[in-house]
Every structure is written in structure tokens, then in C-alpha cells.
Design a protein around this nucleic acid. Structure first.
Lengths: 344, 344
DNA sequence: GCGCATCGTTGACACGTGTCACCACAAGCG
DNA sequence: CGCTTGTGGTGACACGTGTCAACGATGCGC
């Protein structure tokens, strides 16, 4: 229900936004002087009284420089583009994002998260290029093509860093090899004597980029042994979980590695409700070491994932921006370690 | 460990980014023509052969327009600024954000999430104003001051919408009254006959903006009754939870409303581990209706929060941008409803 | 009085784009 | 031929900023 707010005396909407020329006029100096003062340009000396006059005038008008004009003149920006995720990311990523942002700001970059929902890979690259970012840090949700990378570089991007599971030609790669996660999990289950291992794949779209490599890792760990690895799908609902649990015995599996702790918790509860003993009849292990996983009984086993720190990545961005022609680096950013608790 | 990537023949880094003038030159036409063709300007007639020549030239050069130059010339942008959260938001918010972004993009806005970590309220407003956004949707994490709002409006923002718990003078308010959440929770507990109610406040910083109003709502619900409402603090760790549980009996409470389901789950488990019966000795209710809350035994009671849809908000943004001088609206965006399960 | 260095300030240009007013040309019409 | 009308295209300006080269004034040394 709309309610009128207290009427404040509105200035006419057509009053133009003040520019540095307005500041100059009010202070009685030239526009050049205004620029020198407000940017603290050290190569030019301006007398103290003038500085004060200019600052006062700027303050009075509420002058704010125009970023677009500034970067147009400068010929470059300090924008680091961070394509926004559309997938439900866990607390691990949130923390990483925040740290990355903080550190980049410390290095005087302007962090811009730019959504690209509903755009194709090359459309997205084109849209990003319009902003003329100095660096792009892609998280692999949009599959940046080599053409996209080249387009970005030609538009002035000095660093294009992909953080996803797969490498992209031309980019400074920072690979997060999600396969390690599946590998550690299955290696652990094998060690525990399990031989018929299900890998829980979420039905939710957008997660394949993470779930597929994890499955591949699981297969790799079982390769050369007599163990069997088989994908099973499940949606993130109670119904789907109990449905899977009711089929459990006919599947003939003795363990399951779930995509992450949330799916693992859901499935474990459903199994228990179907009178299937965990870990006796079914060992369960998740991933990401969610705090909540420790609350269930038995306590959920998990794979702890160690991501690169935001600071580390921020420094890499800065290094590449300063020297784009330096040797491209390839970093492996994930450490994965099975954390056995009671469910496996 | 850095590994050299396959060497691609690099073009010299100093090759300039192609402009519309380059396209014009290559196509053998004027720059004006290029602009008309690439923007499909309907008011001007350009022959089909010329259009083809221009498009081919643009394609060949990999031309991408310069957003800064464009908006400088246009005198305005289509940027909607979405100050980035630094608090760990739940799945509720993630979904809302994504929908909002999607809908704004559909309306041809450019959504930019701009972090303001470590900046004060007015510094942040100034930084935002530099981008000359046409609209700002603040989520109340930065407490936008009336001065900040005015600064933004003077810099060309036609819509400034605050989505936080509190109103800000001059902005088009969309209030999310978090008090309702606490109110519903405590009303439910009272109905169940509880009289000594603890309100769990997170120790983590950044959440006060949400936790304080929820506490206020709890107090409001108990007002005029003989019930007692008392805040207790807890951190999001197992240690902190078990510490609180060990003090439970001396606190003399018979129920607790937790900030959200995660804290509630943590506390409930700790209480059970300390041999305190839930809900017998202590009723527990959380908030946000997390799926995982239904996995514990007893099942966790919660408060389901209904937020505005992203589409609704996107349409409000568009409406205000089109008619900024229309009557400011005030919307209450939250619906809160207690969802009793087994823990209360 | 004259050259010369220093200080404080300024005029002018360039960045890349969109768009208005105008132009050259041809065709149609009396 | 002279005038209008339509077609297809262009020259030039403005948007707001940073910075270079140049300028007048002042002081200093001789």
C-alpha cells in the first residue's frame, strides 16, 4: 500500500549534475586547476589558498567526478570484472568472494560483479568487453571460449583468469580441479573396504560444472581396482531423497559419495527413515565440511576442500595486470582431504 | 607451481583497441554511418549494401563499442547499482538476487554489483555516484544516510530504493520489516504456553541489522503479557553452542527463538547432547525454513519468511525510473508465518 | 636595464560516441 | 529550365575529464 512520504522541497529535476567546470567557475579558477587540486597532482604546484577555494567550491556543489569521462580520457579503467554466479554457492565461496573483493579494493581496483544470466558465452564476453575491464576473473559458470578471451584481450583486458574446472586457451588459468574431491572421497571408501560405490549427482541444473568433474575423479580413484562406481541422480527435496532410499537395496550399492554435504545429509536421513543402517549397510560421505553435517547422528563424513585464498588470487590479478606478457601461470588451487567421521 | 602454457603468437600489446572510426575507414564510409548501422537507428535510411559493408568491417575488426564513451555522450546510463552483500546470506536471498537480476536484464538494465567493503556510508555513496547509475537498490547493509541519498540523486540517480529494515529520508522505501519474524515466532511460543523465552543473537558481526529488529519484534509480541524475553548470544561454532547449553538450566528459560535455522540446529543438538529434552525442557524455533532443519529429530520448528519477488522489485525500479517524481511508495515486503513442527 | 629561472595558472587538445543539420544528387512535375 | 521532394550519406559538435605546452608575473643576479 503506497503511502506518501514527507514532502521535501524538491529541486527541479532538470538541474544538471555539476561538473568540474561548474566548480572552476564558482572558485574563480580554470578547470585545469580544479583537476590538479582534486587529484592531488604532485607534478604541478598550486598555492594553498587556491586549493582551499577549489575544495570549498567542490564541496558546496556536491561535485562527484564522472567515472565514464575519466576512464575515457585515461584510456583504461581499474575495473576487475567478476561475472556473477547464478548457481547457489556455498559458504565456502561466499567467504572466498568477499575476501577477494576486499583485497582487490585494497589494491585500488574497482570490483564489478556483472551478471550475464541468459546470455550465451560470446554474447557475454562482448557485453563484458564494453566495460573495458582491465581484468576479468571468470568462475567457470559461463564457459568462456578462446574467441571470448581474445575479444576481451583485444578490448584492453590485460588479465583474463578462469577459475573453473577446465582450461581455456589464451587465458591465465587458475584451475580448480574438482576431480580431486571425488578422488579423495572414493579413495577413502575403498580403504574402508567398500566396493560398490554410488556417486550422487544433483538434478538441479547449473551444478554439472562441478558435479561432472567430481564424478570423473571418483572413477579415476576406482580405476584399476575391482570396485564399481555408478552415478545416481537425486533432486534437493525430501521426496526425491526418500524415493532414492526406497530403491537403495535393489541398487546393490554399499556406499555413496554425495555431491556435497547438503545432499549427503538429505540422503542419509532418508536412508535411516527407510531402516537402512548407516554406515553398516551404506557408507555416506559428502563434501565441503559443512558445520551442520556434524549435527546428524552418525556424524557425516566429508571431504574438506581447501580453496585458494582471496588474497592470493588478488595478488595474482595484480601481477598479471602489471605484466600481462609475463609467462602465463597455471595454478592448482584445490586441496582435498577426506575427513572420516562416523558415517563411513 | 607455475607451468608455461602453449605459446600462442601474441599480437603486440600496443595495438590499439578498434574504434568506430576504424570500422568506418575499413568500410569506406563515414563514422556517422557506422553509428547508424550498428545501432539500427530507424530515423535514418541507409542502403542495404552499405549496411552489409559496415557490419562486415565491424566483425572483421572485432569492434566492441566503448560503454563509457557511449554513456558520456548519452548523458545517462542504464546501470542499476546493487551494493554487494558482505554478510553470509542464505539461500532465500541468493534466489531473490538472481531473480532480481534476471528481471532487470529483461528490462534492458545493466546490473552492477559494486562492493563497498570497508567504506563508510558517505564514502560509499560518493563512490557509487561516480558510476552515474540510474538506480540504486541498497539492501540495508550499508546504512545509506539522507545525505548519501541526496548525493546520489544529484548525480543523476532517478531511483534510490532501500530494502533494509529502516527507512531513509528521500529514498523510495521498500521496507523489509524483520520484526515480523520475531513477532510470529514468539507469538507461537506463547501460544504453546512458554513464558520465559530466550532470543538467540549471533555474535558474528554484520548480522545486527537483521537480528536486532527480530529481537524487537519478539519483545513486541510479549508486551502486555506476563512472559519474559531475554537475549542470549552465541557464535556459529559447536563450542559456543555447547557452552550455552551447559548454562541452560541456570538461565531458567523454557524456550528459545534462534536468529535462523542454522543457529537453531546448532543449539538444539547441543541441548540434546547436554541431556536437555527438546521440546520438553526447551522449545526451539528458528527462521527461514531451511530444508536441512527438517532432518533433525525432533523436526525443527521455524518461521517461514516470504520475501518480495525479484520481478516485483524490478518492476518497481523501472516504474520509478520512468517517473521519478511520482509519489514515493512504501511497501512492506515481508510476510512471516510460524511453521510449527516438533521442536516447539 | 636585461636575461633567466621559478612559481602559479591556464588554454587547448584528445579520448569514443550519438545525433542534428546539412549536402549532393537524382527524379518528378509544371 | 526552375522548383519541390526524396534518397543516401556526411561534417561537426557536445558529453566531462586529464594533461601538456605555454604564458604572465615575480624575483634574482649581473
Amino acid at each position: 500500500m503506497p503511502i506518501a512520504m514527507s514532502q521535501t522541497p524538491k529541486q527541479p529535476a532538470d538541474r544538471p549534475v555539476p561538473t568540474s567546470a561548474d566548480v572552476a567557475r564558482l572558485a574563480g579558477v580554470s578547470r585545469a586547476t580544479v583537476s590538479y587540486v582534486l587529484n592531488n597532482t604532485s607534478a604541478v604546484r598550486i598555492s594553498e589558498p587556491t586549493r582551499i577555494k577549489v575544495r570549498a567550491a567542490a564541496e558546496e556543489l556536491g561535485y562527484v567526478p564522472h567515472a565514464a569521462a575519466r576512464s575515457l580520457r585515461a584510456g583504461h579503467t581499474r575495473i576487475v570484472l567478476l561475472p556473477t554466479s547464478h548457481i547457489p554457492v556455498g559458504p565456502l565461496y561466499s567467504r572466498f568472494f568477499n575476501e577477494l573483493q576486499w583485497e582487490l579494493r585494497r589494491l585500488d581496483y574497482t570490483v564489478v560483479q556483472y551478471g550475464s544470466l541468459g546470455l550465451g558465452a560470446d554474447e557475454a564476453a562482448r557485453a563484458w568487453a564494453e566495460l573495458r575491464p582491465v581484468a576479468v576473473v571468470s568462475l567457470g559458470e559461463i564457459e568462456l571460449t578462446p574467441q571470448g578471451v581474445q575479444l576481451l584481450k583485444r578490448s584492453g583486458a590485460r588479465a583474463v583468469i578462469t577459475l573453473g574446472p577446465q582450461r581455456v586457451e589464451g587465458a591465465h588459468a587458475l584451475v580448480m580441479d574438482q576431480r580431486e574431491v571425488g578422488e579423495s572421497a572414493v579413495a577413502h571408501l575403498l580403504e574402508r573396504g567398500r566396493r560398490r560405490i554410488g556417486v550422487l549427482m544433483p538434478e538441479e541444473p547449473g551444478l554439472e560444472l562441478f558435479s561432472r568433474p567430481r564424478l570423473a575423479g571418483a572413477r579415476k580413484a576406482a580405476h584399476g581396482t575391482d570396485a564399481l562406481v555408478e552415478p545416481v541422480t537425486m533432486a534437493y527435496t525430501e521426496e526425491s531423497a526418500s524415493q532414492l532410499a526406497s530403491r537403495w537395496r535393489e541398487l546393490g550399492l554399499d556406499a555413496v559419495f554425495a555431491y556435497n554435504d547438503e545432499y549427503a545429509m538429505l540422503l542419509m536421513r532418508a536412508l535411516q527413515d527407510a531402516d537402512i543402517d548407516v554406515p553398516g549397510e551404506a557408507a555416506v560421505i559428502g563434501a565441503d565440511d559443512l558445520l551442520l553435517g556434524r549435527l546428524l547422528r552418525p556424524r557425516l563424513s566429508t571431504v574438506r576442500v581447501e580453496m585458494v585464498t582471496g588474497r592470493h588470487l588478488a595478488e595474482l590479478v595484480d601481477r598479471v595486470v602489471r605484466d600481462p606478457d609475463g609467462a602465463p601461470e597455471r595454478h592448482d588451487l584445490m586441496g582435498a582431504r577426506a575427513l572420516p567421521r562416523e558415517s563411513s
